[in-house]
Design a protein around this nucleic acid. Structure first.
Lengths: 211, 211, 211, 211
DNA sequence: AATGAATGAGTTTTCATTCAT
DNA sequence: TATGAATGAAAACTCATTCAT
């Protein structure tokens, strides 16, 4: 592992554990076994390092949301959406430290990387909306799409953001596959009911999904 | 308004805006128009001030969860749960700065007020579980209760935690009543479907709920 | 002596000795026997301290240039000018560390206190020009006033700015009165010749000047 | 232009603009489009680069002071002195960034290149003194020579050292020939009067000077 | 009840320099 | 000849806290 990666890895772990502001360059440097000046050398400053972490999270995250949005032409929206959600859950499960810290930092208004974050969230919103909108064409439930996306985002974020809560209070480990699987099914069921049209034969269909 | 309240008010606003670690005692002091030493005088130290804010949030929050849990003896679980959720949403809507900052801080593992927070979250979990469990007695959907609570918590937290996201991306203002009303209905619908038993005549029944 | 003054005193000595950029806050703090943070407490930052030093020099300096300019109404311009020059020389002689460091810093374009300095220099130029212009009314030598002021400024600044040069190379000590006296006479002679009109009886008249 | 020259050029520009201490090796490297390590490679360290700049200035400067001093055997002292002054002024005018920064650095006592500078200033003093002493042989004004040299040095240095002052306050550009010409004449006149003996026919004589 | 003065410990960042290549 | 990687040392500055008043 090269120096740059070691720094990013250490940064993610510590930003997750203590928050961005609560983590010092020195902490990161010592965890990555480098001199604090080396961090400035590679990332210019602390904010540069933060932005690298954001990119590290959002680039793959948005890329598979984009993939599924592109597949809307061939596959059913419901299928694409469910596949997307599955990918998101497993991605967050795998990179749970990163996911958690990113979703937390995103909530700080005065975050200096505001612009970058906004751009990413706009893209994300576009992909979710496009997928859900198509899926809702035959929707019987009159929820506005905004509410659904917000609901969905809350569900997707929750166990990873509140990792500790889930662990301490429920004794489950969000970053393990069994949890991801179980939680994915919960959300899938919610979606199937919500999207409605295929409700009756939903279960058998879903079970065959190659997701 | 007395000095102590002025300090707490200033602290909430700034903790929300810049995070606990990102806010300095001096920031708070200058916003509250007092000397930094005054904060130490009243709250001993920065952590003391934080804990006061946590109490400020959790005490009323848990008190009405507790209320509704107590009412389970007389009213239907579904009714209690929906009333509880409504209260939570409107409470967070009213104290959105506080809610947001608390839900964010809660996600930091190394938060120095860990013990206090854990205690509050345990209580919260007890109330939600008790209510949902009773409501689910006749539930046809085999979701484990843990998943439902996690789902519900995600939904309840999301718009307040990600205030800026909802504002910027969706153009809605979570702290305004029209949003709370709308979002409450969305979650209520989800619950009604989930709890199932009254599904067929759900809509008319619901409209009569005195919530 | 209070803390603030002790810091300014230490700053002047060190800025003179090692230059503004070459002097560290720590140097100053240790010379003034205070904690480095105390400097931030009183002057906000290093630049604030520098500006206090500039004020410390320019305020009295400009005030007696202003005085003499105001006296133009009653006394002869030549008299006022010579009195002003005498005051400047003795002032710089007394505060030679300060004078030297200020005249040096003034030559750095990218000096962060540029605006403040410019303002002071504009005022200074106004006073000198006003005095010389009146004195030159009967001037026979066609030097433009700008050249004269520049010449004069060079003479006035030189021994204090290049203190070390005068000491090392000429074995004289600019900050001692005997030097000031001697140098003042040199410049006075230059002026008397330049201003010309009273040249013939210049010497006796001058000797009676109550400067 | 080769690498070494590019570095010196960049160094002069930046030392002038921000002072020696205020300029970093990285600044210079980036302006010269080389790697910081290259500077260490050529000049050993920052001080080595500074000394190269001092040599770059003083060698030609002293060489033409020396030239004119040698010509004292054949030409009149007055003529040599005026020619020397003219050369100095035009030299400084041409290399105004360098001149300015050198004259400023020279005023810092704790300058690490103290010894080198002292040596150069001693030489300079010898040349000026020799020339003026010879010219003053018939001098009627009883100024000691030290005062005259100091006066002269002040005049010669001023517009280049305080470049910005002259530009901002007087709207003249010291590095342009018209200014040098004008300023040279002012000093020449001062000298002619001071040296006295040839005063009456000074002007016509001077106009024929082949300087 | 409230604060101005002061600080020790810590923060991020900059910098000149080294060294293997 | 020239440089990218890396760093030890030091820079300026910030901060929570203390204490006499």
């Amino acid at each position: 592992m090269n120096t740059q990666e070691a720094i990013i890895e250490a940064a993610i772990a510590l930003f997750n554990l203590k928050g961005y502001q609560g983590t010092s360059i020195r902490d990161i440097a010592s965890r990555a076994n480098v001199n604090p000046a080396t961090i400035s050398y590679y990332f210019k400053n602390k904010q540069g390092l933060l932005e690298e972490c954001l990119i590290y999270f959002f680039e793959p995250y948005l890329s598979f949301l984009e993939d599924e949005t592109e597949k809307l032409e061939n596959d059913s929206a419901q299928l694409c959406l469910i596949r997307a959600i599955k990918k998101v859950i497993f991605f967050q499960s795998k990179h749970y430290q990163l996911a958690r810290f990113v979703w937390r930092e995103v909530t700080i208004d005065s975050q200096t990387s505001r612009e970058m974050i906004s751009l990413y969230l706009m893209k994300e919103q576009y992909f979710y909306t496009t997928m859900i909108q198509k899926a809702l064409k035959e929707n019987k439930i009159p929820s506005p799409i905004s509410m659904i996306v917000i609901q969905l985002k809350g569900m997707l974020m929750m166990p990873y953001l509140n990792n500790l809560y889930v662990r301490e209070v429920w004794g489950m480990i969000p970053q393990e596959p069994y949890f991801a699987e179980k939680y994915f099914n919960t959300i899938k069921n919610w979606l199937l009911i919500l999207l409605g049209s295929e409700e009756e034969n939903a279960s058998p269909t879903i079970k065959k999904l190659p997701v």
